[in-house]
């Protein structure tokens, strides 16, 4: 555990809580891509199956349970409790175009050809592109609420901090996970355009187009 890893995890947690609270407080999920949230629930489910097979630390176990729980709570709020406010007409990204290729890639490029390891690899690849339906939705409607942009910013910061974490671990621990690093770089790059808009527009006018 290093400072980049810890702040990355906390930034990730902040993003998840911000989204959940926004939907709960406004009693609306307008502008939120339910498809991205389904993908994140799928990411956490397939990655954290090791909760059932191995214990790493209390921190690790608690965070995994919180992430999974919040992901399903968010999906529930969007598709059940506040379904009437869900903007399905603008959430038109075809997620099978992500899930199917990512599933194929996980079978072909992995550390070990075992069920848990393939599912872990699938979750890493899928996470790197899971935000695309949300970004697609924003590009389609041409706007996002400020709080939604804070959510996206925290998510992007989390992945960027993980990159620094991997650099740290490479130098000080000799740790090197090519699958996580390549997927992490791809994921961070996807946020770059958004980062630029966030810094130049959101802070200036509190709403961006």
């Amino acid at each position: 555990m290093n400072v980049f890893r810890l702040t990355g995890d906390l930034s990730h947690l902040a993003a998840i809580i911000i989204l959940l609270l926004k939907i709960w407080k406004t009693r609306s999920c307008a502008g939120i891509s339910g498809k991205s949230q389904i993908l994140f629930a799928l990411v956490f489910t397939t990655r954290y199956l090791d909760l059932l097979t191995s214990f790493i630390s209390l921190y690790n176990t608690c965070m995994k349970i919180i992430y999974v729980g919040c992901a399903y709570a968010t999906v529930y709020l969007i598709y059940a409790k506040f379904r009437a406010t869900y903007d399905g007409n603008h959430d038109t990204f075809r997620i099978e175009f992500l899930v199917v290729p990512v599933g194929g890639l996980a079978f072909l490029v992995n550390h070990d050809f075992s069920p848990l390891e393939i599912l872990w690899t699938f979750s890493i690849y899928l996470e790197s592109v899971a935000i695309l339906p949300q970004l697609f939705m924003i590009s389609k409607t041409g706007e996002a609420e400020t709080i939604t942009t804070h959510y996206l910013f925290c998510l992007g910061v989390y992945r960027a901090l993980y990159l620094f974490n991997w650099i740290w671990r490479f130098y000080f621990e000799g740790f090197f996970d090519m699958i996580a690093i390549v997927a992490g770089v791809v994921q961070t790059i996807l946020y770059c355009d958004f980062f630029y808009l966030y810094v130049t527009k959101v802070n200036a006018v509190q709403r961006f187009q």
Binding site: D9, R47, D50, W120, Y162
Partner: peptide, 10 residues
């Protein structure tokens, strides 16, 4: 390299 099924990161 990484140890399989020892993914400590979240």
């Amino acid at each position: 390299g990484t140890l399989v099924e020892d993914h400590d990161e979240l």
